[in-house]
Structures are given as structure tokens and as C-alpha cells.
């Protein structure tokens, strides 16, 4: 009789605790490397709007969050999932609660991060195919594009881009650089008869200001328009800037977090950004007498006159 009572009691607690667990709101922690950086702020805002759960936030840019207080919070909260914006945030989460699910975004060269099978994220670079499609969309006559790449970071991107570009009638030629030592000679070996130069994000190509300046001077000398990935290049004469749309990254991260929390793991742990941001330098378009697609103007975020 006593055993029967104990069994009933055990079953009762089991049911109550499982019902409680089922209704428990998941704990979502957001660590922002510095919320005062506008792109990080945009990503954070979009994530919070899209995630249907309460989010505890940590802004590492705020002085009150020193390392001991962040460490304490991570152990006290012990969140079900942590969303990290920027690499600093990711490194901290990975160090203290690396055994939990972590989603990252807004990290340059994410392959350098210490990854686990519980790491998910949105990369910070538009997929090569997406970029070529957008070039073609804005500049339908662009047929031959050159680029520099490094074997260490961007060889795969080059191969992939070359392959995908062919489907769009675009020919891509490239030369490999090694730690910025042969950048200029590699550039000089690129075919001269081309429509544009595609300057990609690679620490071995853009190793210093002088190297970058030499590449851009050579573009100018060849009267070669160049496309790039960051709005800072507009001042340096880029014709077109293709970058990521930050709010979309935040929404993608929220989508990944929702799927992981519901037990449906994403097919790929890291996905490329789904939204693009386009800046068109009309001054350079006119200077190079480039023909652009007026119907694509509705897809352009900003025009530099």
C-alpha cells in the first residue's frame, strides 16, 4: 500500500513537472557586441520584433557589462538559446555556455569562429551567385568581370562565382594573391579587355591602405569600373556596392532560433543573408558611360549623384 502511494505521488509530480516544462517559455538571451554600432542595432531590433519570446539583452558596448557580470548572467540565466551579434559576443557565449545552442550573425569571416554542432548563424557576406545576379540586374551589358582572390579565404568563392556566372552569360577571370605580397603583379596579369573589376572582402587582398590604393589606381588607369561590398568604397570610386540588408539578417536569425527551439534543426547550420542593400554611384556610372537598367531603380537603396 505504501509503495502504491509512493508510485502515485511520483506519477503526479511527473505529470505536473512535464506540464510545467511544456508551458515554460524558452529563455532567449541576446548578446550584442556593441548596440551603438548602427548595423548591430538594426539587426537586434529586427530579431526582437520577429521572435515570439521574451529576450534578455546584454550590450557589451555598455560599461556596466564587465566580464564578471556577463559571466554571472550567463550562468544564472543559462539560456535555451543565445543570439550573438558580432564576433566578440560569440566568443564570450562560446566560452561560458558553448554546450548550449548559439545563433550568430554580423561576424566577419565566420569560419574563424570556434564552431560546434550547436552553432547556427547567418553569414555576413552575400552569396556570390546573388552578387553576380544583382550586377547583371543593374548592368545588363556587363559580360566580363575580373577579380582577385586568395587561396586561403576566397578561392572557393571564386570557383563558385565563376561557375554560376557562366549560367548568366558572365565570364569571370581571376588571379590568386598570397598574403598581399603579389597583389599588384596579380592585378596586372588580369585580362585587360573586361567590363568591370569585382573587389571582394578578403584580408589577403586588402591587407593595407597602400595596397588597396594601388589596386584602385590601376583600375582608374585602365578606365575599369569596380564593384565592391562596403559603402566606404563609394568615396574611393566604386560604381556599385552590394552589401547585406541588416534587418533581414536579424529576421533570419530569429527564424533559425524559432526552428531550433521547436526541435526542427535547420538543414544548414549557417546560411547566407537573404536580403541585399544596393548603392549606385551615378557619378561613376556617367563617367564610365555605363548602361544601367532603369527598371532596377526600384531595387536600389541609395544613389550617389
Amino acid at each position: 500500500m505504501k509503495h502504491l502511494k509512493l508510485t502515485w505521488l511520483f506519477c503526479f509530480f511527473l505529470i505536473v513537472s512535464s506540464a510545467f516544462a511544456a508551458n515554460r517559455m524558452p529563455k532567449v538571451l541576446l548578446i550584442n557586441s556593441d548596440a551603438s554600432v548602427s548595423k548591430y542595432g538594426e539587426v537586434q531590433e529586427a530579431f526582437k520584433e520577429d521572435i515570439p519570446h521574451p529576450v534578455v539583452g546584454v550590450n557589451l558596448g555598455d560599461e556596466k557589462w564587465d566580464m564578471p557580470s556577463v559571466e554571472n548572467l550567463l550562468y544564472d540565466e543559462y539560456p535555451d538559446i543565445t543570439y550573438c551579434i558580432g564576433s566578440k559576443a560569440y566568443h564570450i557565449a562560446s566560452k561560458y555556455i558553448g554546450e548550449k545552442d548559439i545563433v550568430f550573425s554580423s561576424v566577419l569571416n565566420w569560419l574563424r569562429l570556434p564552431l560546434t554542432r550547436k552553432t547556427y548563424g547567418v553569414s555576413n557576406e552575400l552569396h556570390a551567385e546573388m552578387q553576380i545576379m544583382l550586377f547583371r540586374y543593374i548592368f545588363p551589358d556587363v559580360r566580363k568581370v575580373t577579380m582577385l582572390y586568395s587561396k586561403r579565404y576566397t578561392q572557393e568563392l571564386f570557383k563558385n562565382a565563376k561557375d554560376k556566372a557562366r549560367n548568366m552569360g558572365v565570364e569571370i577571370a581571376g588571379e590568386a594573391v598570397f598574403k598581399g605580397r603579389n597583389t599588384i603583379s596579380a592585378f596586372d596579369r588580369l585580362p585587360a579587355d573586361t567590363d568591370a573589376f569585382w573587389l571582394i572582402s578578403d584580408p589577403e587582398i586588402i591587407s593595407d591602405k597602400k595596397g588597396l590604393s594601388n589596386i584602385l589606381k590601376r583600375c582608374e588607369k585602365r578606365n575599369l569600373p569596380f564593384f565592391s561590398y562596403h559603402e566606404a568604397f563609394v568615396k574611393l570610386g566604386a560604381v556599385l556596392i552590394l552589401s547585406v540588408d541588416n534587418p533581414t539578417i536579424g529576421r533570419q536569425a530569429a527564424g533559425i532560433a524559432k526552428r531550433v527551439l521547436s526541435g526542427n534543426k535547420p538543414a544548414k547550420n549557417v546560411e547566407p543573408p537573404a536580403g541585399s542593400h544596393i548603392i549606385l554611384n551615378m557619378r561613376k556610372v556617367k563617367a564610365y558611360h555605363l548602361k544601367y537598367n532603369e527598371n532596377a531603380l526600384g531595387s536600389v537603396n541609395s544613389i550617389v549623384e
Partner: peptide
Amino acid sequence: LTVPKDIDALMSVSL
């Protein structure tokens, strides 16, 4: 997933 423009939506299916 809300994306900025239609061409992004089509490309996100492709990728």
C-alpha cells in the same frame, strides 16, 4: 521571411 525586394525573395529560394 520578410526580405527587402522581390528579387531577393526569388534568389533566397534559389540559394
